[in-house]
Nucleic acid binder design. Structure first.
Lengths: 210, 210
DNA sequence: CATGCGTTTGAATGGTCAGTCAAGCGAGGC
DNA sequence: GCCTCGCTTGACTGACCATTCAAACGCATG
């Protein structure tokens, strides 16, 4: 592609998106300056606008980019797990902010909230947000369908409805957790997600491992 | 227009907060200018900063002010309903964005998301948000406790845990609804909230009225 | 080594606001 | 009627930042 000016291998476009996502994550969308992104990416401010039409477009792309990454990462992991019950547990582990030490940043959830705010007024972002969300719910529904098929889940309710309920529950709880709510802690969210899933999908709880 | 210093009865402080909430609701926090608020309130820009120390403080106050109003309004209504089941239904009716025509604005939910974004970095707002949220969950828990006591709800689970689950579900669904998600519509959210409540709290569904 | 071209730089430009301020305004007291 | 004092105005100031741009830079090619 371009071995020369740009760093070999990685491409600037992606590097900048990544830097932007990081800056947004810890400063917040509103406090993100082009110069912050440039600094984070280790380039000059001018370069940012050489690669992106405007700050606005860049931020929008960065937001969906980051959430896309999360989905892809999760999706890849899930596909290697055979049991629906374990798939679900893994999705929960990955979704509860702060639960897994290795993913311990301020979290993609913070970015997700920024997506919401922006989607409220930006039709482009609204479209992307809806697509991202439906894909996420579909993934959950797929797991549920699998578990119903294999007999792991005894509930016979519509998988899409069940997925919607679990997804909404997780959204609502995750918000409180990243807000550092003193009642809704990481552990409590995790426990609640597992318990509700078990009740709603119809399977017995297994002793927590680890 | 101006009889004496402040308009009789209403006070400027409150008027401005109200105007600010309205502007934030339809332009979004990020696009809210002092001059917009002034225009909405029908005063000059300078006056805004005569009553508030800074734009930032004003916005923060406006955000909690609006949510406080919503809580108070709901709370007052609920207190007049004797049946726990009906109390719950009313809370749901009031919380589902767009369900009741009379409350048909872009909704306090939009403001609530702005609160989240801001609370992520502003400790003051974080504190207020936590208080507001706990109060809301307590209200739900109180209804549940009432229903358990009266025998309307057969579930014997911890009311606080049940309230948390229902509140989180409602948050998660409401987000999608105000985003105008094509799958998660106002009606679907309403139905889901009612069904889940019935299942989780243990009461039989009654035919929808109206 | 000279040329060309895609990158990269950082200084300059311009627009947009938040916040300030000096000047008016009007009601109520005297 | 005149003064005072709290409210109100809107023009002004200064900062801050997105965006532009002219100038380098350095690799590749011949």
């Amino acid at each position: 592609m371009n071995t020369g000016p740009a760093k070999q291998g990685k491409d600037r476009h992606q590097e900048i998106l990544d830097a932007a996502a990081r800056v947004i994550t810890d400063r917040g969308l509103a406090e993100t300056r082009i110069s912050d992104i440039a600094e984070q990416a280790g380039v000059s401010p001018g370069l940012i606008l050489y690669y992106f039409e405007s700050k606005d477009r860049l931020l929008a792309e960065a937001l969906t980019f980051a959430n896309d990454q999360f989905y892809l990462r999760t999706s890849r992991e899930i596909r290697r797990i055979p049991s629906a019950r374990e798939q679900l547990r893994r999705v929960i582990d990955l979704s509860v902010p702060g639960y897994l030490p290795e993913y311990g940043r301020l979290d993609e959830w913070a970015l997700w909230i920024e997506v919401w705010v922006r989607a409220l007024r930006d039709p482009e972002m609204a479209k992307d947000r809806e697509a991202l969300d439906q894909r996420w719910r579909s993934q959950l529904a797929e797991i549920i369908r699998g578990g119903q098929g294999s007999g792991e889940f005894s509930s016979a309710e519509d998988p899409d409805e069940l997925a919607l309920r679990i997804a909404a529950l997780m959204d609502g709880l995750a918000i409180q957790v990243i807000m550092d709510d003193s009642v809704v802690t990481t552990e409590r969210m995790h426990r609640t997600c597992i318990e509700v899933s078990a009740q709603v999908l119809g399977f017995a709880l297994q002793p927590a491992k680890g």
